[in-house]
Amino acid sequence: MNSSVIQEVEGRAIPVRGNDIDTDRIIPARYLRAITFDGLGEHAFEDDRKSNPDHPFDDSRYQGASILIANGNFGCGSSREHAPQALMRWGIVAIVGESFAEIFLGNCTAMGVPCLTASTGEIAKIQDAAEADPQRKMTVDLKEKKLIFGDIEVDLQIAEGNRLQLIEGAWDATGMLIEGRNAVREIADKLPYVTGF
């Protein structure tokens, strides 16, 4: 049950501009009426795309891009893992933004999709660069915490625990948590509400 080591992600970037883009916008609730995550990719940002024909997810220049560049509070709202699942199934393998809502970030990490942050100014620079040349390759380096394109390096931030999970291939927590089962029993047996007061 070991998950793969994720130390570096290389790909083209797709900018999705705007603060407070919530998970209802990333995947409208009607697509949560399912018992699998299959097929969610094609519905990512569906309503935003319908109301905005220029949405980057429909822009031919960004097809095949894999690093999403977002602004502030990306993924706020509902805890639906369907949101990062939809992005991943569309082709996104890493997200760089100004900030992330915490449940969304936790979901991404648990799926092996790194989320890293940079300042407002740096994000604008990356988004501009991706727009100016959508074919440009970018690299997210988790070991050095940098995004690199051409001769430009941008410092990125990520919580150390999440970074270690990803670079050591421990982002799928289940196996690790199972290993602690004896210690879990000990803690449970000390909790008054478990033992019946």
């Binding site: 893992e81 990062p84 648990a110 927590a173 289940t174």
Partner: peptide, 15 residues
């Protein structure tokens, strides 16, 4: 999220 639901079901724990 769902992956963490799996973790709680399997281990009664979260990381």
């Amino acid at each position: 999220g769902t992956s963490q639901v799996r973790d709680v079901l399997a281990t009664q724990c979260l990381a």
